[in-house]
Each structure stands twice: as C-alpha cells, then as structure tokens.
Design a protein around this nucleic acid. Structure first.
Length: 863
RNA sequence: GCCGAAGUGGCGGAAUGGCAGACGCGACGGUCUCAAACACCGUUGAGGGCAACCUCGUAUGGGUUCGACUCCCAUCUUCGGCACCA
C-alpha cells in the first residue's frame, strides 16, 4: 500500500513583514474528506475474515436503533471504540469492527401512525442518513458486513431459531396479561400514562387483558447465567444480573384450608418460603389477588370486598405493588388455613404485595421475621410471634421491628420440639419432618421470569406459527421461511396491529392437513434481534443457516463489547441466554457471547435529561464537525471525562482539543518558528545545554508513550489525551531552540503522531504524509504502522522530589538522588530546616517511609 | 420502594491508602498588532499575611489509619434499570 500521487508538499514557511513566520493553518475541512475517501478506496477497514495470519480481535459496539439522526451520544459510543480498533490493529491484530441497525421497533410504527407512512420507508431513510453521518466520523467500520434486522434475510433466522427452540422445549405458549386499550390495542409500558393509567393516544382507561402469548424458557438457564467464570465483566453488571436472577433457596410447604361455614376445607395451598425455620411463627397467610383459589375460597359475605380489591390490584404497577414504603393493603377472604407443623388455624388474606408470578403466588406470613409481613400485621392487628431469638433476647415480649438478620448463636423459640436449634438446622429439620408426610420439599426459586416475546405489533419478526382447527398449533415448515411481513399495511391512524386485519396474511392452509388455518399475528420482541446479531455480522448473506459455524468458531466470542449500562439486565442477559440456547441446538460451540464488557456512560442533553427529539435537547454532531472537524469532536468526546461516566452534554471546552490539534500541526510543519510573547523564545531553558535538552525531550516522549499505552489499555482516554497535551507543551517549549528539528525532536514528533493516530486519524495521516514527502520517502498510511516501543533507559531520571510530612501534613519537599536509600532519606528529612522547625526539639516517635521512598511522614506526639 | 452507580475549584475533570485540584475550558494580566481576531507567555480553590508562610477545603455526620477524595457505618442528592422504549 504505497502511493505518492496526492501527497501534499510541506508548506513553505515565509517571513512576513512583521518578522513572524506565517505557516499554513490547520484546516480539518480540507483534510478529512480527502483521507476518508482514500481509506475507503484502499479498503483499509474491510476486514478479511479469512485472514488467519494475524490473531483476530472482534470489537463490537451495541448497534444503533435508526431513530433518524446520529446524535452526539452515538459518537460517544463509537469514537473510543474506533480508537481501540485502530490501536489493536497497530498491535498486529486482524480487527473486525462491524456495524448494523436494530431496525425493528416501536418508534417506526409511531411515525407511521402519526404521519401515515410506512415503518419500512421511515427506517430506511433514517439508516441512509445515519450511514452518511457515520462516515464523517472516520470510523473504521467494516461496512460490507452490515446487518439490518428488518431485512427478511435476517429475521428469517429469528423464525428458524424460534422453531428450533420450540422443538427443544425452550419455547412455549401461555396466557398472560397485557395493558390493553379498546381503541389502540396492546400498549407498551411507556404508552400508559398518568396515575389513572390511561392510553397516551386516545386517553381511554387502560385495562388488563389476558392473551395467549409465546415465552422463551430463560429460567432453564438460571443457574448457568449466575456463573460468570470465563468472562471479564464489570462487577456492577454481574451483581445486577445476579440480583435480577434472584436465586432463593428454601422450601415449598403445603397448608390445607380449614372447614368453616359454607366451606368444606381440604384444598391444598402451597407456599414458597426461604425461611422454613420460622414456620411456627406463621400467624396468617397471604395469597396474591390473582391466585386461582381466591375464587373458590372467598366466603360469600366477603365476596364484594374481595372482588373490588382484586380489580384495584390489577390496575397497579408491579413497582408500586412491591414498594415497601407504601401502606400495606389487603382483604381477609373469610377462610382459614391449617399450619401443617402445629395444626394451628390461621386466617387467609389477599394482598397486592404478593405477586402471582413469583414462587407459588402464596406466602405464609411470619410478621416477627419479615418486614412486609410485620407492617401488614400491624396494619391489620394480627399476632406477631417471635420464633427466632438472638442470644440475650427473651422468647416473648413485644417486638418493635421484624427480626430479619441472622446473629451468631441465635436459637429457635416457641417452636415446640425444634426449640433451641439454630435457624439453619431448625429449618432443615422442620422441612424433613413435613417431608415424611409429603407436605414439604426443599425448593429453589428464582426471581427471573421466562421471556415473553409476543408483541401485538406489525413492525417485528412474525412468529412462524399457524393455528389449525384440527391440528392446533402447527409450526411453519422450514422450507416456507421466512414468513414475510406483508408490505401493504394501513394503520388507519390507530395503534392496534394491522396484521390482524390483513386477510391475505392471515389465511393460510394448514401445513399438516391442508385445511383452512390462521397465521399467528404477533411478532417478536426486538430484543430477539439483538440477542444474536454479532454472529450474523460474520456471514450476513449466508442463506444456509443463521451462522456460519466455521466463522463463528474462528471469530467469536466477541473480544470486546461496548454499550450502555442501561442494558445490564435485559439485552445483556438475553444475549447470554440466546448464546447458550444456540449452543444446545448445536449452532455454536461457546457458552458466552462477550468475553470483555465495557459500559460507557450516557451523554445526556444539556438539561441533564436523556437526549430525545421530543425533548428538543439533541446535539447534532454535523454542526460541530463542520466547525471543528471530526478529529476535534472525537478528541473532545474522549477528553471530556472518564468513558464510563457520561453526563450532560456541553460543547464548552471543545476549543481545548481543537487548540491542541492546531499546536500539533504547528509543531510538525514548523519546528523552527517563534512567536512573540515568550521572553525565552529560541533559548534553551536555563541550565540546559543541547545534550541535556535532548535527553529531557526524549525522556518526556518515552514517559508519555509508556503512560499513554497504559491509558489505552485501561480505556482511560481522558488522561491519555491530557498526557499527549503535556508532551505537546514540552515540545512547544523547545520550538525554535537549537534542538528543534533535531533527532530527539523528530523522534518525539513521530511518537506523538503515532500515539495520537487512533484517536485523531485524519490529522495524523495528513501530517504523516507530509513528513514522508519532506523526507523523500514513499507514502504509507500511519494506520498501518506498528505501535512504538518504549525506550525504558530514556525514561530514567537521576533525581526526584520527595514530599516530607510531619504528622501527616506536608512541610517540605526534598530533591534527592533517585537511588537514595531509606536511612539516607530519613536523615535528609530530619536535617530539613523546615522539619526541625516543626519538630521544635521533640524526638520523632515514628518515621514512616512510604511507597519505597515515595513519601516520608514523621510522627511526633503533640504537646 | 428494590437493584446498580455517582457526588472534588466558576465549569469538564485528575489523583483508588501517601504532595488534593494533572490536563483543558473560562476569567484576568502581558507580548505581537494602528486596532481587533489569531498565535504566544504568565496568573488563577477559599481565607489571612508586606512577605516567608499559615489556616481551611473533596455532598453531610461519625469511624479505622502514622496518613483518607480513596476503606467502613449512617444520612442526603442526582443518574441508570425494574421485564412491552431501545
């Protein structure tokens, strides 16, 4: 890859009348498009996936939703990722850095309903605009591997894999409630507004409606998903996923309902508890309002009240129901249960703090040892009986709070034959006792629920299922895939799914009996698309299967995945699940999708809110690129702060990086220039001769290289840029002096450009080409260079500064030989006049030489 | 509410047990200029002092340590997620 044809000549510097040199100024608009075109022409970023001569590196960023325009948040994700991709290439890796679009989803439908267009058109136009904007960044995406999830060649494989999961028993159908508007059909969470829960479009009150829907069995992998061995993920994400999965060990225990007026008793009520040791403390029982036995158990005189409560609970959100802050509500249903361990009769309540989807939807309430049960018991005047006592605590007597935590030496009390056992042993013994008669068994439950993938919407992957009157649920045969979305749809300005009205789509012959049948009209959650897209980048046009196994084996797992922490428990967990499910279908040979994860922060609008068109707080990068150039915008985004932090967007300060790049430009093309304003211009610093100055410059350059390399590795881009600025400041100090343009200077410039190249690819490429031209070398891209090596010898220093503290307060700084010994350092510190003044004749009690002589602290008793 | 994260100059931030405020923005002063812009050099946490210097200071209150922005406990505030936004 060599070429000299359009390499610019170094610009002549001319003396102007005022004695100042006039050099060509840094003009990114002239430089950037030229190099972008050149890189594209040379195919610099099109990864050859078949090349095995170099080690592979799969660099992935979360693909964008084509919302319309790229905003500065997209740049914030991509810019450092691109810098890393370039950095890894300089280390000899064959880097794959693909891009695509998460093209299905709600906003496209909203636009279609609002504007009367088609989600397809809206999405395609947005993608075209975003592709253009991505190109102005100079990102090294491998465009020829692009994936668009709304394309039948992609979603076909969602359908195909769904059918494999169905065969494996990983997909199933179940009734479950949705938020329903009579005019606009199923509503998403964000489409339900206000405390009274009304439809965002038409304002109608939102109802719950039970629909038959498709689930994926994520819970089958719950234990495996808790195992993070072999992947290097941030601890907060691992903790969040662990808590989300929420593994609880405990027991299921059967209570029988008691005979009473109008009720014969004898039904089994199974509860799940993590605290079987507290069974003697169960003073009432609580069912979820949705529990199937509520209907049969409710006493006639309670029926009206219970039904009203059930209706009210249905309208509450889960967050609201689980709030421990809210006053406890509930209703006694007029029935009792019998505690199997002591035959005690306890009343049955329904309350919305018990959820039907967790455990068995019923609990034994132990107010003495559970905070929510305690609050409920207080509210309803129910007995609170202590059954676990910490050492020194009386077995009886009033309790001000639930005793939940465990204490060393605690014992069961008020628990009949189990009194005196530890909570742990007692729980096991109680379960074992009941297990003899089949009334209890040890059980593990999870907070994690199976994944509901059915969506009552048009703009998604059709679920490939046919309903036949004789054959029931019939999968679409593989040969008939993809089930395509019909193109002509009419939303009629409403939110419900137009597929349900499309006769041509709906009517189909049953693949088994040939009789009349009906297609499933639900489509898949868009999280299905994003659960495996990185495999498809490797073989986007493959029509034999979803993944090319050989490619997947060679290139996955992904080495580095970058995206927002807001995806901690959904997308990132679904992707892990999907990979494991694919593995179990024999499609891939790995357990985990992403080896290393990094969560970059989120750029908010200037108002501190999430950027969105409706808020009008979106920062358009095009404007900034036109004004400062892509390199400045890239550098500013990296310099703003730590990458994992994000924060409100403010362009204040973008002048800093621009200024820095201008200085790099000036240093490279005009080393001998001088500016007025510096009284020392042209002179070496006092006390330095040429040799000392060159040694100092080399030392600065190689220290910078050492530190910048560490910062790239640790993704500390803000300090990386700061260190390059420091080096440029050092170089500016030597500009116009006798060492400017010499060997040490030239080496420092070379290192500076190489270190800056991944972050600011255009200006470095331009300056690199000019240096080549000046030296009469043939051009080759700076982006094909190797990362330079640190000269450790050059970084050594003969003296260093040691802070001296007295009682932890800084009192002096000593300049000492770098190789000074500990005792010598102590002696020097004690000899310091400032130190002796503070000691005022007192003998030091202790002298601490910290960090191998990095700091000295003299401790002396205060008088 | 529950789970996770973050609070440091006028502003973005640096320092992850050892010199608080690197680097940059802004502001102020200067050089250059007829002038302005650009560029370049310098000053810039607060308070006190002529000065050398001193005191205070990392959301708040406590603790551990020779030494705490950093570790522990409690509190406050802000942000992300809570299963149909992506």
């Amino acid at each position: 890859m060599t070429d000299t044809a359009d390499t610019a000549k170094i610009v002549e510097t001319a003396e102007s009348g005022d004695g100042r040199t006039r050099v060509e100024r840094y003009d990114p608009t002239a430089v950037e498009p030229r190099w972008q075109a050149r890189w594209a022409e040379l195919g610099l970023h099109d990864t050859d996936l078949a090349d095995t001569s170099r080690p592979k590196y799969y660099m992935l960023t979360m693909y964008p939703y084509p919302s319309g325009d790229l905003h500065i948040g997209h740049w914030y994700i991509v810019t450092p990722s691109d810098a890393l991709a370039r950095y890894r290439r300089m280390h000899g890796f064959n880097v794959f850095f693909p891009i695509g679009f998460d093209a299905f989803g709600l906003p496209a439908e909203n636009a279609a309903i609002r504007e009367g267009g088609h989600p397809f058109t809206w999405t395609m136009q947005n993608m075209e605009n975003m592709r253009r904007q991505f190109r102005t960044m100079g990102a090294t995406f491998s465009w020829k591997h692009e994936v668009v999830t709304a394309d039948p060649s992609y979603y076909r494989w969602n359908q195909w894999m769904f059918l494999r999961f169905l065969e494996k028993g990983l997909a199933y159908r179940k009734k479950s409630p949705v938020d329903w508007c009579p005019n606009d059909g199923t509503l998403a969470r964000e489409q339900v507004e206000g405390a009274d829960r009304h439809c965002w479009r038409c304002g109608a009150p939102v109802e719950k409606r039970d629909l038959d829907q498709w689930y994926l069995r994520t819970t089958a992998y719950a234990d495996e998903l808790l195992d993070f061995r072999g992947i290097d993920w941030p601890e907060p994400i691992r903790i969040q996923q662990t808590n989300w999965i929420g593994r609880s060990e405990g027991a299921e225990i059967d209570f029988e309902t008691a005979r009473s007026d109008g009720h014969r008793g004898g039904e089994t009520l199974r509860v799940f508890t993590t605290r079987p040791d507290t069974l003697f403390g169960a003073t009432f029982m609580v069912l979820a309002p949705e529990h199937p036995l509520v209907e049969t158990l409710t006493a006639p005189e309670m029926r009206a009240e219970v039904e009203a409560y059930v209706a009210q609970a249905k309208r509450r959100t889960e967050i609201d129901r689980l709030s421990t802050d809210r006053e406890k509500t509930g209703v006694a249903i007029g029935a009792s249960a019998i505690n199997p361990i002591n035959d005690e009769q306890i009343p049955i309540y329904i309350a919305d703090y018990v959820l039907s989807g967790y455990g068995t939807g019923a609990i034994m309430a132990v107010p003495a040892h559970d905070e929510r049960d305690f609050a409920f018991a207080q509210q309803f005047g129910l007995p609170i009986r202590r059954v676990v006592a910490a050492p020194g605590t009386a077995a009886d007597g009033p309790m001000a709070d639930a005793y939940v935590a465990h204490t060393e030496g605690e014992r069961l009390v008020n628990s009949g034959p189990f009194d005196g056992m530890s909570a742990d042993d007692g729980g096991k013994a109680i379960v074992a006792k009941l297990a003899e008669t089949g009334k209890a068994e040890p059980k593990v439950t999870y907070r994690l629920r199976d994944w509901l993938i059915s969506r009552q919407r048009y703009w998604g992957t059709p679920i490939p299922i046919i309903y036949c009157e004789t054959d029931g649920i019939v999968p679409v045969p593989d040969a008939d895939l993809p089930v395509r979305l019909p193109e002509n749809v009419d939303y009629k300005g409403r939110g419900d799914n137009p597929l349900t009205l499309d006769e041509a789509f709906l009517r189909v012959d049953c693949p088994r009996c040939g009789g009349p049948a009906r297609r499933e009209t639900d489509t898949m959650d868009t999280f299905v698309d994003s659960s495996w897209y990185w495999f498809r980048y490797l073989s986007p046009d493959d029509d034999e299967g979803p993944v090319d196994r050989a490619m997947a084996d060679a290139w996955t797992p992904v080495d580095q995945y970058t995206g927002g922490a807001e995806h901690a428990v959904m997308h990132l967990l679904y992707s892990r699940f999907w990979t494991k499910a694919m593995r179990d279908c024999g499609l891939v040979g790995q357990d985990e999708p992403f080896l290393r994860l990094f969560n970059q922060g989120q750029i908010l609008g200037a108002d501190g809110e999430r950027m969105s068109k409706s808020r009008g707080n979106v920062q358009d990068p095009d404007e900034l690129v036109a004004r400062y150039g892509a390199d400045t915008v890239r550098l500013y985004l990296m310099f703003m702060g730590p990458w994992d932090q994000g924060g409100p967007w403010s362009p204040t300060g973008i002048g800093g990086p621009h200024h820095f790049l201008s200085r790099v430009w000036t240093l490279t093309i005009d080393p001998h220039g001088r500016e007025p304003g510096d009284p020392d211009a042209g002179n070496l610093p006092a006390g330095e001769d040429v040799a000392a100055a060159e040694a100092r410059l080399r030392s600065a350059a190689h220290r910078t290289l050492r530190d910048v390399t560490a910062d790239y590795e640790a993704y500390h881009f803000n300090t990386m840029v700061a260190k390059l600025m420091e080096l440029s400041n050092v170089l500016f100090r030597y500009r116009g002096t006798p060492i400017a343009g010499g060997a040490a200077w030239d080496e420092a410039i070379r290192l500076l450009l190489l270190m800056l190249a991944p972050a600011a690819p255009h200006i470095t490429e331009e300056l690199w080409s000019r240096r080549a031209a000046e030296a009469g070398r043939e051009w080759s891209s700076i982006h094909t260079e190797s990362w330079p090596e640190v000269d450790v010898a050059a970084t050594a220093e003969s003296t260093r500064e040691v802070p001296v503290q007295v009682n932890g307060k800084l009192r002096d700084k000593l300049t000492v030989a770098a190789a000074i010994s500990g005792p010598e350092l102590e002696a020097a510190a004690l000899a310091s006049p400032k130190v002796t003044a503070f000691l005022a004749g007192r003998q030091p009690d202790k002298i601490i030489v910290a960090g191998g002589g990095k700091l000295i602290n003299i401790v002396v008793r205060e008088v």
